[in-house]
Design a protein around this nucleic acid. Structure first.
Length: 567
RNA sequence: UGUCCGAUGGUGUAAUGGUAGCACAAGGCCCUUUGGAGGCCUUUGUCAUGGUUCGAAUCCAUGUCGGACAGCCA
């Protein structure tokens, strides 16, 4: 008996990484009572993208691999000036779509504002924090630089009582924005800038999407995040590499306060994808400047965009598994994402015949008015997907690209006098080429080998090429959108000459085909079903712009094409 | 002349002192009523120099290169 796992078991096999090893060791040693509690902590200031998917798969994945594990969804909503409720909803939808469930564990950093304020008072009482009256400019000047130590604020040695009074009056709204901050008293000479008396609270008279006008002071990330983690008794607080230098501050704050837990912060490398930008700031810019149609534009690397384009959650999950988790800051080839997607779509997509750029074909020896219903396979990779009928008649459309009057080398599709097989139908022979006044080919007069239909006496004849087709009288006209990468260079945001990332936008990232011809069965299409238009690629019905009887299809990704044009 | 982190084929990763392996990409072949899928094969790698060791991608030292950090953003 073979003990080798079957392929499907292999794809489900859990792959480990350095973070999972840490978690497993902690569980084994009984640390945290062997509990595993992670969290995914987005700021609701933009849509989630493929980079977040990596973090979602990591945090929810680790939690699901431990029997009592759980992962919290926590909105890091400490900056009311950029956060919106629309983003909260989109984040919830996207995490669910990715296939994860946070159950009752949905939280907001703003849930903890009162506790955080009390902790602030506590820090003041113990002499670990003070109210500083410096302006932002002075604060910046005195902070020093990575190589030059900072100098202490003149307000550093206020009395506890004065600090307590001032902090409470900050909360009460007595001071304008920016007039004062609460600062931790740590070490202005520290080689780590984040330990040079970092700000903990700032004054912002702004309306918060959850707490309304209840607060006019808001905690800063470094202060709110570690305490939120601790209050939720997170065991492993997983974040990206840029927070590595913040870790001493994370630990310092928790050490000063009577918190119920001290989570371990672990950093990993964020995803960088070739030909893509993955920064919320830049994505927001594309949206705001109208360079894309919105956060869910199918060219966007957002989960909403990818979903609309036709990417599947399982394909994205497979990609995340494939790229692994390390501390190496690299650039992942987008081909890896596309491979993961094709692999998934190949198993799921319903095959369809569609002609993007129609060329009319009249079959001279096929009876006028006759219609045959030919059997076609919905998915050769999955017999359970069944079969369908395809109408065939005297007048067809084939792809313009599938005919060449003067064939290139190794072109084995239709040529004058040559034969090609029509998928699921007959062997077709080109008898004559009709051109317009400008010499452009506008129609082909053909004949068909009437014995060559699938199962017929000459069906087995050796014919080099097989092309797709659609019966003209039965075709459904639709709009098809062909997408290409949004940027023309590998690293659009890493330009050494300081050029803006928008310089590299691909002007041909979208091509619209207004009148493609599709086989009639496609009227039943749904935006939840993946399709493969044979020989062309994977397509998804657009959930937004499709109308009854006139669907719009987005090209998700092309088929891998091993035919390279010569000459 | 700061602190922290990192470096394995073109790309992403594995090997946890004991045969450098996998996937993608690239190339070749077979098969095919999708130039898809599938099958087989090939090319290419431990940043450098020392040290420890019977044995080093792994441990140590030094160097080189790369990244993060100077928001009252997260």
């Amino acid at each position: 008996m073979s003990t080798e796992p079957n392929p499907s078991e292999q794809t489900e096999a859990v792959v480990s990484d350095f973070i999972r090893e840490i978690v497993a060791a902690d569980v084994a040693s009984g640390k945290n009572g062997s509990a595993v509690v992670t969290r995914f902590p987005p700021e609701p200031n933009g849509y989630l993208h493929i980079g977040h998917a990596k973090s979602i798969c990591l945090n929810f994945g680790i939690a699901s691999e431990h029997s009592e594990g759980r992962c919290h969804l926590r909105f890091d909503d400490t900056n009311p000036t950029r956060e919106e409720i629309e983003y909260v909803h989109s984040i919830q939808e996207d995490v669910r779509w990715m296939g994860f469930d946070w159950g009752v564990n949905q939280f907001y950093a703003s849930d903890y504002f009162e506790k955080l304020f009390q902790f602030g008072l506590e820090l003041i009482r113990s002499g670990r924090a003070y109210v500083c009256d410096q302006s932002a400019e002075d604060f910046k000047r005195d902070r020093g630089t990575p190589t030059v130590p900072g100098t202490p604020s003149p307000w550093r040695n206020r009395t506890v009582d004065e600090n307590l009074d001032l902090f409470q009056r900050m909360r009460a709204g007595e001071f304008p924005d920016g007039a004062r901050t609460l600062r931790a008293k740590i070490d202005m000479g520290s080689p780590n800038i984040h330990l040079r008396d970092p700000g903990l609270y700032r004054i912002r008279h702004a309306h918060h999407h959850r707490t309304g006008d209840q607060w006019c002071i808001y905690p800063i990330y470094d202060y709110a995040h570690c305490l939120s983690d601790a209050l939720e008794k997170i065991t492993h607080s997983i974040c990206t590499l840029e927070f590595e230098v913040h870790r001493p501050l994370y630990d310092w704050i928790l050490q000063q306060l009577p918190v119920p837990a001290h989570p371990q912060q672990i950093e990993f490398a964020r995803l960088n994808l070739s030909y893509t930008v993955l920064s919320k700031r830049k994505l927001l810019q594309l949206v705001q400047e109208g360079l894309v149609s919105g956060w869910d534009d199918p060219r966007m690397p957002t989960l909403a965009g990818l979903r609309r384009r036709g990417y599947t959650a399982s394909g994205i999950r497979a990609f995340c598994k494939r790229i692994g988790v390390t501390k190496y800051n690299g650039l992942t080839d987008i081909a890896l994402l596309e491979y993961s997607l094709r692999e998934d779509l190949n198993k799921k997509a319903l095959r369809t015949l569609a002609v993007l750029r129609p060329l009319k074909v009249e079959i001279l020896n096929y009876p006028e008015g006759q219609v045959e219903q030919l059997e076609a396979i919905n998915n050769p990779e999955n017999p359970e997907a069944g079969k369908r009928l395809l109408p065939f008649s005297r007048t067809l459309y084939i792809e313009q690209d599938d005919f060449m009057e003067v064939p290139a080398k190794k072109f084995f599709r239709l040529i004058p006098g040559g034969e090609v097989r029509l998928r699921y139908a007959y062997i077709l022979k080109c008898e004559a080429v009709i051109k317009d006044a400008d010499g452009a080919v506008i129609e082909l007069k053909c004949s068909v080998d009437l014995d060559s239909k699938s199962g017929g006496p000459t069906a087995g004849r050796k014919i080099k090429g097989t092309i797709h087709w659609v019966s003209a009288a039965h075709a459904l006209e639709t709009e098809i959108r062909l997408y290409d990468r949004l940027f023309t260079v590998e690293s659009p945001d890493g330009d050494s000459e300081g050029r803006d990332f928008k310089t590299f936008l691909n002007p041909r990232s979208l091509e619209t085909i207004p009148n493609a011809k599709l086989e009639p069965s496609i009227v039943q299409a749904s935006p939840d079903q993946s399709y493969q238009f044979e020989r062309l690629g994977y397509f998804q019905m657009d959930a937004k712009d499709s109308k009854p009887g006139r669907p719009v299809f987005n090209r998700t990704v092309t088929l891998k094409d091993s035919w390279v044009k010569t000459g």
